[in-house]
Structures are given as structure tokens and as C-alpha cells.
Nucleic acid binder design. Structure first.
Lengths: 202, 202
DNA sequence: CGTGAGTTTGACCATATGGTCAAATCAAGA
DNA sequence: TCTTGATTTGACCATATGGTCAAACTCACG
């Protein structure tokens, strides 16, 4: 393995290449379904060379997940207590849908992990994620108390946003099998927007 | 393999046992993540004995999927063109949520398959599923034309129902990590009900 | 250049896994 | 009870897979 000094030019490039290749493979096949050889080939490296940069398959997966968790939660993080409630929420939803459109691999990486019981990120869920959600539901409840948005179960409101937006990335094949040529996001955007405008109107 | 005469008592029992065990294992680990040994152990049989009833791992998986697809689509099938629109749709949603609660393994079996691109059921999606959805969206559009429910993109309306209801089965760990002790379905039921009443009101 | 650290790889290993087979055991009807 | 087909299994096989290692090769820098 590379010493833990400042990473060289080559180390930087290869680590990034590997993580990108691993994202392709893990998101498409899940942890168990992905093979180190597949990732190595995808990255254009030999297997031993890949294992020179990461000590194990598990290490690559962990590096990916923890590196992407922040990105994944950023939209919710940005929900601003001091903003205009309806606008803030709709903007959050918009950013979330945008992520499903632009980062479907990341969405499926987490989906794979969650569907199988999140064996490798259970801690992050009950700690970081729960903390963030608790913080933001407080904000939502505040807005409800002020009558700015309709009173709803704040946790389920957030779940619904996750479900509706991530569905288009996670179950992409199904959506496309039904819609045919039509671009899923074309119709999803106004549909979801309408849905939440109606739902949240006080 | 058993001859294709009328199945014996033992054949019936063992096939059922195997499919049930396989549902446990496949839904928890995905196709690639499940092992024949695991399924055999779960079923209380030896591996060769299990392979006496099904010719391969793939065959078990296929048998499961095709056997459960009907069950899975039944609620949508039951959506009755001649019923009262709002009531019909809310009833469909209710049945769908009930399935997430009572058949989470089945939900995750399909979720696993879909997230990974549905390599083994792509045909069923573009044929059976698409046909059924097309049929029912026609009904929905009819109701919209009559002004019985709000005008919305009918496909996305159905997607939203799938997303919101199956989320509770597929991402169960995440939901529970955030809700803690609270029963997810306790709050989900009224939340989703409210959501669609507001959304569908003309 | 020369040299040592950083990088790459062919060959290899242990284990896991899907699947096979012949022999043994069991069950039910004549 | 006897016989025959159904059922079960221990032993085995080929392949796939995660991971190791020593030797070879590159590259940056004095």
C-alpha cells in the first residue's frame, strides 16, 4: 500500500479512477454482486494494482459510501430555517430530484445497501442521518406551528420526498419500461411540484 | 429431478418450503448475494436434495419471481373502472400499503431485482406490467376527463403510489433508524391518505 | 545519469460456490 | 411383504473469487 505521506500525482489519479469504477460496478450489482476483477477492469488496472491502492473490496466500498454520504445529504442540509417555508421545501425537492437525474449511480449505491438491511452503514443512519433529520423536522414543525405550511407528520413528509424523488433513479428500468421514449424527469418535475404545492398549502 | 407427473405430497411440501426459504434469502441478499447452501439450510434440506427439486439457483429465483408477480400486481388489477373514483384509488393505495406491511420480503425481492436493472424480469416489465398500467391509466384519465379527480399525469400518479407505499418495505431499516420505536405504518397510513385526498380533489 | 522510493504485474493460494453422481434410504401400492 | 419409483445424501468437481507476494519496472530528484 502507498505510504501515508502526501499522495503523489499518480496516487490521486488512480484512487479517483478506482472509486469511479467502483461506483459503476457497486451501484449496478450491489456489494456481493460486484467483483474486484470487474472493478479493476473498469478502472483499467490489474487486480493486484488495484489492491495496492485499497486494502480490500470492503475498503473500496466503505470509502465510496462514506465519501458520498455528505453529497447525498447536502440538499437536506441546505434547507434553511430562515427562508420562506414553501419555497424552501420545494427547492429542497427540486435539488433532490435533480440528484436522481444527475447522480443515479449514487442513488442506487445507497438503495442497494438499504434494501439489504444496510449492513455497512447502519451506524451512519442512526447517528448522522437521524441527527440531521431530527434537526430539520424541528424546522418543519416550527413552520407548521406558524401556520406557514399544512400540519403533517414531519418525518413522513421527509420520507415521502425521498421516496418520490429517488424512485426515478432507483427504479429507473421500471419507469422507462412503462413510459417508453418519454423522459421520466420531464413529467416527474411538474407532477411532484404540483403534489407538494397542494399537500403543503395550509 | 421429480418426474412431471402429478406432484406427490412430499414434492408439494418441499417445493413450498424451498420457495419460502428462498424468499427469505433472496430478499435479504439479492440474487448474487444469496447462496444455494444458505437457502438449503434455511429450508432444512441438504444442497443436493434442494437441487433435486429445482434444477438451479436461477430456476428457484425465476419460479419465485413469476409466482409472485401476480400477487404483486393484484391490487392494481382490482382497481375498478365502475367504482367511485376517489374511493377506488384510496382503496388501491390502502391495499398497496398493506402489502408493504405484510409482504415486505416480496417487496424487497422485486426491489433488489429492479435496482440492479431487472436483468431477470425485464420482459415481464415491458409486457405484462406495461399492459396493466396502460389499461389502468386509461381508467384514471377517464376519471380526470369526467372531472371526478384532479387532472394529473396518470403514469406519474401511479409511480408516486408505488414509491410512497413500497418505500416503507424496501427502506425499512432507514425508516426505523429515524423513527425509533414508533411503528412506521401507524403514521404512514394517515399521511399518505391525506396526501392523496388533497392531491386528487378536483 | 544513478538510485531509491513508488508503481505494476504474473503467478499463485485458499476458500466459496454452483452443480453432479452413484449409492443408500424411504414410501406406497400390488 | 415385496418391489419399484421417489427421495436423500456424502463425496466430489470445476470454476470463480478475494487476496498475497516477490520480482520487475518507472519515475522524480540529487
Amino acid at each position: 500500500m502507498p505510504k501515508d505521506r502526501a499522495p503523489t500525482r499518480i496516487q490521486k489519479k488512480n484512487r479517483a479512477t478506482i472509486l469511479n469504477a467502483a461506483l459503476n460496478v457497486f451501484s449496478a450489482h450491489g456489494f456481493r454482486g460486484a467483483t474486484v476483477d470487474q472493478i479493476a477492469t473498469e478502472a483499467g488496472l490489474s487486480k493486484p494494482n488495484l489492491l495496492y491502492y485499497f486494502p480490500s473490496k470492503e475498503a473500496i466500498h466503505t470509502a465510496l459510501l462514506s465519501g458520498l454520504l455528505e453529497t447525498w445529504l447536502a440538499p437536506l442540509h441546505d434547507l434553511d430555517e430562515d427562508g420562506e417555508p414553501m419555497e424552501e421545501i420545494l427547492s429542497y425537492i427540486h435539488r433532490k430530484l435533480q440528484m436522481s437525474r444527475e447522480l443515479p449511480r449514487e442513488s442506487r449505491l445507497f438503495a442497494n445497501e438499504l434494501v439489504q438491511g444496510a449492513p455497512r452503514i447502519h451506524d451512519a443512519l442512526s447517528n448522522d442521518l437521524k441527527a440531521l433529520v431530527d434537526e430539520k423536522t424541528t424546522v418543519l414543525t416550527g413552520w407548521m406551528d406558524q401556520g406557514k405550511i399544512a400540519r403533517l407528520h414531519p418525518y413522513h413528509l421527509i420520507f415521502s420526498i425521498w421516496a418520490l424523488t429517488q424512485h426515478y433513479a432507483d427504479f429507473d428500468v421500471q419507469v422507462r419500461a412503462i413510459l417508453g421514449e418519454e423522459d421520466p424527469f420531464e413529467g416527474a418535475e411538474p407532477f411532484i411540484d404540483t403534489l407538494y404545492r397542494k399537500l403543503l398549502s395550509p
